[in-house]
Amino acid sequence: MLRDPFMEGVRKLEEIAKKVRFEDNTAKIDAKGLTHKELNDLIRMCAEKGAEKIILKNVCGQRYIGTRLFLPKKVEIEIFGIPGNDLGMFLDGHRIVVHGNAQDGVGNTMNEGEIVVEGRAGDVVAMSMRGGRIFIRDDVGYRTAIHMKEYKDKVPVLVVGGTSQDFLGEYMAGGVVLLLGLNRNRHLANYIGTGMHGGVIYIRGKVEKYQLGKEVGIVDMEEKDYKRVESLVKDYLTYFKPKFDLDEIMGERFTKLVPVSKRPYGRIYAY
């Protein structure tokens, strides 16, 4: 017998529609007791019905919030509780705010839009992210921003208030990662930027050479780097209102990491 924990017990839309309350253009969904699919069914229904803002209460581990919204109209989703894995995976231009922590895979292969997490996030945040912005107030887990990539003016941005675990920016092919290291005296990650071949990582505070992968190099911050970082820090301050001010954050030393080569593995083959 094959059990399908994901699809099992999924109720029809009519049965769960009472979980939704519409007020003008805002829909409120009580996510208590809803399966992953049920919640996303309701979110899609609300978006299709023209909701501009969708507020989710009592979220507890439901996955893929925001994924099933390949729709022309963009919405804002506000989450109370803890969203499950792959929050905003493949997100297509919507905005998600989490009043709390998030789990693994925030913004996985995200396309456009913005995710703001007022707390910490788990592993593989911003994996293969292709556009849009992610702001995490506190720390993130392992393998953050793996294989993030950019194309022309479509440049993804990840801002982390705290620090990251190992393999930050592994295989990174584009995009901007900013690690602010607030409330920390040192960064924890090792193997930063292993296999990196595009994009840039800015790290505020101390980071030692041994923490870096061999495909990245440290270069000096230029005027345009400071401008870019400052503008992101301003947004961070607006979103999270931490006890730090702009001068305090910008006063610290920043390290800029870039790939040594656009072709890290070009020389290992015999033709």
């Binding site: 393998r143 592994e170 092919a173 584009g174 070009g266």
Partner: peptide, 21 residues
């Protein structure tokens, strides 16, 4: 190809051995 793959021209398109998720 760069516009189809959405990566800059001239960079290696590296597919990692595993899916990292």
């Amino acid at each position: 190809i760069s516009s189809t793959r959405m990566i800059p021209e001239g960079t290696d398109a590296i597919s990692p051995a595993p899916h990292h998720d």
